[in-house]
Amino acid sequence: MSRLLARYGVWLLVLALALGFLLLGSGLDFAYVIPKRLTRLAAIGIAGVCIAYASVIFQTIAGNRILTPAIMGYEAIYLLFQALLILLLGTQSLVLLGRHGNVLLSILLMLGYSWLIHRWLFRNGRNNVYMLLLLGLVLSMVMATFTQFIQLKISPGEFSILQGFNYASFNKAQPAQVIYSGLLVALVCLLVQRTLPLLDVLSLGRDQAISLGVDYLRSVSLQLALIAVLVAVSTSLVGPTAFMGVFVANITYALARTNRHRVTLPMASAIAIALLIIAQYLVEQLFNYNTSVSILINLVCGVYFLTLMVRTRGSA
């Protein structure tokens, strides 16, 4: 009973939050305020699904509850790419590529990185998650340094654009971008939907999965490719979210009390969306745009995760 409550309760919560977000203080202005907010809400929904799916699936493949794509260096690569674009092409890069060209290039870049990870993860047929994690960490640190350097080199005007990437909020979400991203994510979700039982089997680990007749390498490549697309979309919509994925996935496991992806994926999405709506609402109303969604989220999720680790004495 309580399990059902948790499963559907989160969606009720999301619905309530969404309605509140749309209508509170809108003056019921259906001509301007509400359509604007609707776009933002859609962007939040898409980003939430991306973060939730990417994190949960990645944790299934890696067999570890602390790793998320963000920690493995995906976001660092994205940020470096954006910084390089602005350094090399200046503010014109935006005009030149357009928003879509940029997202498309980012997706290609992420796919390339996914492919690299895949090569590394299964060298000699052994699952080298920890080695790879270290690699991701070092890469992230190197890239963060590069990004900082580039930030120093560019003018304040360009910096504010870059900051837009680094600390994206949903305010600038364009309806067209939301629609494209939405379609892309819907496609990915459809693919994932068809492989739900397969994901459950993958969570048993490589050996057991192969023993149950799974073409392991192929399945994992497919999932990693999907993750790449999801991370690219979410990073271009919200910016880096670092530890949000860990937070969302672990809260989900605790609430869902099962590891079946049929349950965990939708639930994680709901939790991610709720979190993003709350953060966005706080940014708009409480902080008056004086902070950003990613800062708030990193703050809350990071603190939560550290306390979780300490309280449970680390099931890491």
């Binding site: 994690l133 960490l137 990193n298 990071g302």
Partner: peptide, 9 residues
């Protein structure tokens, strides 16, 4: 990893 998480907070 926990150290970085802590640093990021």
């Amino acid at each position: 990893v926990v150290g970085l998480m802590y640093g990021s907070v």
